[in-house]
Design a protein around this nucleic acid. Structure first.
Length: 784
RNA sequence: GGGAACAUAGCUCAGCUGGUUAGAGCAUUCCGUUCACAUCGGAAAGGUCACAAGUUCGAAUCUUGUUGUUCCCACCA
């Protein structure tokens, strides 16, 4: 027993919650190995044997790993509240529950934070360290920070198996993730290809679209004339509009809308690209907006993603009339390729030179100011330079169709249901996944080159890779020439490892099975039950877990996806440091306690809906907890002379109508709670549960039964001493005791601290669980 | 441009597959309360369920359209 005191005065979470936390810390309740019948741990082997025999008796949630370098924000915390609610509910329903906590190394963001927060204050940077030094020190820094995060997870009441907390860069995890890459390679689902990428000239890395953001700025739009090779009618030239004149050196076509009457007679004509005198064709594409600029688009596939798309589309439909690309900007931001005297200039110098030269040739028409939104690096805010680069890709075609099918067939259900549409929409449009990042912090590619690998652009503006000075056409060619190899360990001293690390989603996308496999639990705990996370990473994370899970294990990684909304600041806006409206767990937990915060997240909320931090609601929640506290104390002292109530047969008692009603109501609400939790509608039913406790039990029943409980009137004269009154009093006491138990249990998944505290002094049989975590749910759902 | 959601009381929101008089919390007004709790209880007031048409015996709920708000994706040469 924990010996929690029912102290005088109002409920104070600052007293009760730390006491309960300590009780939970000292006991291994939250390990799936905990055997509630024996009240001690089974070995992991015994657990596995048990689950082999009873596969339905498990419930597993892999907690989404937050960034390891910081404390969880209130969004993470809200997720823990939902995960914990489900875990605690199923534990009470007799399942062996595992909530598996972890921490993420957070790729680009992690690298930037460690450089800024840890290395810069010491005067260190990537320039002053070796890669190994950086990795080791960062690893230590991150593992040190993790302890703080774990404290917060415990503080909110997460009943996870914290001994199993694991870092995404844990060596066993790394090994397993790399195995997936090798398997993908063996099945020819990985390739090294040339593609347009979002290149950050400052970070010197390729960025996924999601690592970029948009910035508004004023820019000049220049109208340039390109002469036609053979004038058609009164057309001697066409005019294009561009904000980046320097990229014209890489133009490979002019595109007009096929429906645009102004240019219909020019389809298929040839234009002489000024300054470099290259002949380029006029092609058509339906995406060209006739109202923008002149309706003529200069096509620079190597330096504009949309142009690249148009090129691919055109080439698909016109196999005999292919359009190519020419890369004219290198990763340093200098001009390159077949561009004559402009070669070697910076893009800014080249822009001036091109404009000057076009003016000299009288090919400059006009300039106007526009506002445009340009992509910048999400981390360092540098303007993105799209260019062609050699990158690793995963072919996702059949992975994605399997992932779509799994949801379509109902093997995986997404809550709320309408998010399924978002998922499908995203998946349908998904292309091959670029997975390489030029960083130091992450999983380095298990790829080796025999000598230095060098990526350059040749005189034609094409990407060329050289290994040890030998040109290779692609990775397969390099392997065949004995210059490259895929392997977790170095093939020999003269081999150099690929510099790239994996996109963070590649490792976190494998989280469900790599975590369980590390613990040797994959065979009995996979697929997991519920993936609970924010709806904002449905596409980025959940979709990848489904694809990679199906690839690696041939099984879905989880059966249900519950997506919670975004936590917003009291002003209704997104919390962000720049707005100065960030609220932390510390701000709230001292004032209201963890249970009240959990209620804020859960009560009245439904899947996918965002909600605000609202001090009125928090205060209301605290009031409710105080109500529960006082009611429990009242029941406790007014039933003190009722001995061993658990031994009393319900049928032997002389109930009054009020007793029967509250018994019925309490059982009804417990049943409803069970049904709604199973359907992931726990937030809605919580309102009814609280209402029922407060009004049916406290305001109505408790006030009524008081009259029957008094043994003395105000003057001290004995009352209620007839045999009928004594029997009625006993029935009332028993009802109070029983119904309080039903509410404590039903409320426990929502507010574990106060209920666990009150459970300690709640009269119960010696065979009852000493922790409410393993008290059995008060009702059994009729399956009929 | 493509996709999705939302629009219900002064505020924040419930209302699941259509079924009596549309609900809760907060706020407001009134009344009460020394025997668990003022972090209390009781009551009142407050809504053309955005608008329009349709389906139906019956619509806040289903369909279509309109208007407004929010989010995601793409794009703005």
């Amino acid at each position: 027993m924990a010996n929690f005191e029912l102290y005088k005065g109002p409920y104070n979470p600052q007293i009760t919650e730390p006491a309960v936390l300590e009780f939970w810390e000292k006991n291994p309740f939250f390990k799936p190995e905990y055997n509630p019948e024996k009240q001690e741990l089974d070995t992991t082997e015994e657990l596995k044997q048990y689950l082999h025999g009873h596969p339905e008796r498990r419930f597993v949630i892999i907690d989404p790993p937050p960034n390891a370098y910081g404390r969880p924000h209130l969004g993470n915390i809200s997720g823990y509240s939902y995960q914990d609610l489900l875990g605690r509910f199923w534990r009470m329903k007799g399942k062996r529950v595992l909530l598996f906590p972890g921490k993420d190394h957070a790729g680009i963001q992690g690298e930037i934070v460690v450089l800024r927060e840890h290395f810069r204050p010491q005067g260190k940077s990537k320039a002053t360290m070796s890669r190994d030094q950086f990795y080791k020190e960062t690893y230590d820094y991150f593992t040190g920070m993790m302890a703080e995060a774990l404290k917060d997870e415990k503080r909110i009441g997460l009943s996870a198996d914290f001994d199993r907390n694991v870092f995404t860069l844990d060596p066993t995890i790394v090994d397993n993730v790399l195995s997936t890459f090798i398997q993908l390679y063996d099945k020819e689902k990985v390739y090294k290809g040339v593609r347009i990428v979002n290149w950050c000239p400052s970070c010197k890395t390729a960025l996924a679209d999601i690592d970029t953001e948009k910035k508004e700025r004023e820019a000049s739009m220049y109208y340039l004339k390109y002469p036609l090779k053979n004038p058609v009618g009164n057309h001697t030239h066409i005019t294009v509009a561009t904000t980046r004149p320097e990229t014209m050196l890489g133009d490979t076509a002019i595109v007009v809308n096929p429906e645009d009457d102004r240019y219909k007679e020019l389809h298929g004509q040839i234009v002489i690209l000024p300054l470099v005198n290259r002949e380029i064709p006029i092609i058509t594409d339906g995406q060209v907006d006739t109202s923008v600029g002149t309706g003529c688009l200069k096509l620079t596939p190597a330096h504009a993603p949309e142009d690249y798309e148009i090129m691919l589309r055109w080439n698909e439909n016109n196999p005999n009339n292919q359009v190519d690309w020419i890369n004219v900007i290198d990763p340093e931001g200098k001009m390159c390729g077949p561009i004559g005297k402009y070669k070697g200039l910076t893009t800014i110098e080249a822009k001036e030179a091109v404009l000057t030269d076009m003016k000299a040739l009288s090919l400059f028409e006009k300039e106007e100011t526009i506002s445009q939104r340009i992509p910048v690096c999400e981390r360092c805010k540098t303007i993105i330079e799209p260019l062609m680069s050699s990158q690793w890709f995963i072919k996702i075609d059949d992975m994605k169709s399997k992932a779509i099918q799994a949801v379509k067939d109902g093997d995986i259900s997404i809550h709320p249901k309408y998010m399924t549409k978002k998922y499908n929409h995203w998946m349908k449009n998904l292309r091959d996944w670029p997975i390489s990042r030029a960083l130091w912090w992450g999983y380095r590619f298990p790829v080796w080159y025999k000598g230095e690998i060098e990526t350059t652009y040749n005189e034609e503006g094409k990407v060329v890779e050289l290994i040890n000075g030998v040109q290779v056409t692609d990775f397969a060619d390099a392997v065949q020439k004995g210059l490259a190899q895929v392997s977790k360990t170095s093939p020999g001293s003269e081999w150099i490892q690929d510099e790239n690390v994996f996109d963070t989603w590649f490792s976190s996308g494998q989280w469900p099975y790599v975590t369980l496999e590390k613990e040797g639990l994959l065979d009995v705990m996979y697929p997991t039950d519920t993936m609970e996370t924010g709806y904002d990473i449905l596409e980025f994370w959940v979709s990848r877990m489904i694809m990679l899970g199906l690839f690696r294990t041939n099984q879905i990684p989880f059966k249900d996806v519950y997506l919670h909304g975004i936590v917003k600041a009291p002003d209704g806006q997104k919390m962000s440091k720049s707005k100065g409206n960030v609220i932390t767990l510390d701000d709230l937990v001292g004032q209201y306690g963890a249970d009240a915060i959990r209620l804020l997240y859960i009560v009245g909320n439904k899947a996918g809906a965002s909600y605000r931090i609202d001090s009125d609601k928090l205060a209301g929640n605290r009031n409710f907890l105080n109500k529960l506290w006082n009611a429990a104390k009242y029941v406790n002292f007014s039933t003190q002379d009722l001995s061993a109530p658990w031994e009393i047969e319900e049928s032997s008692l002389s109930f009054e109508e009020a007793d029967r009603q509250i018994l019925q109501k309490a059982r009804d609400i417990a049943l409803q709670v069970e049904q709604k939790i199973k359907k992931f509608r726990f937030g809605i039913v919580a309102v009814d549960l609280i209402q029922s406790f407060w009004h049916d039990f406290c305001d109505t029943y408790l006030e009524q039964v008081k009259q029957r409980l008094y043994t003395k009137d105000k003057e001290g004269n004995p009352i209620n001493n007839s045999p009928e009154a004594i029997a009625s009093r006993k029935a009332g006491q028993w009802t109070l005791w029983y119904v309080l138990g039903v509410y404590l249990k039903s409320l426990h998944p929502y507010i574990p601290f106060i209920t666990e505290y009150l459970w300690d002094s709640y009269p119960k049989a010696s065979t009852e669980s000493k922790t409410l975590s393993y008290a059995s749910w008060p009702v059994t759902e009729e399956t009929s």
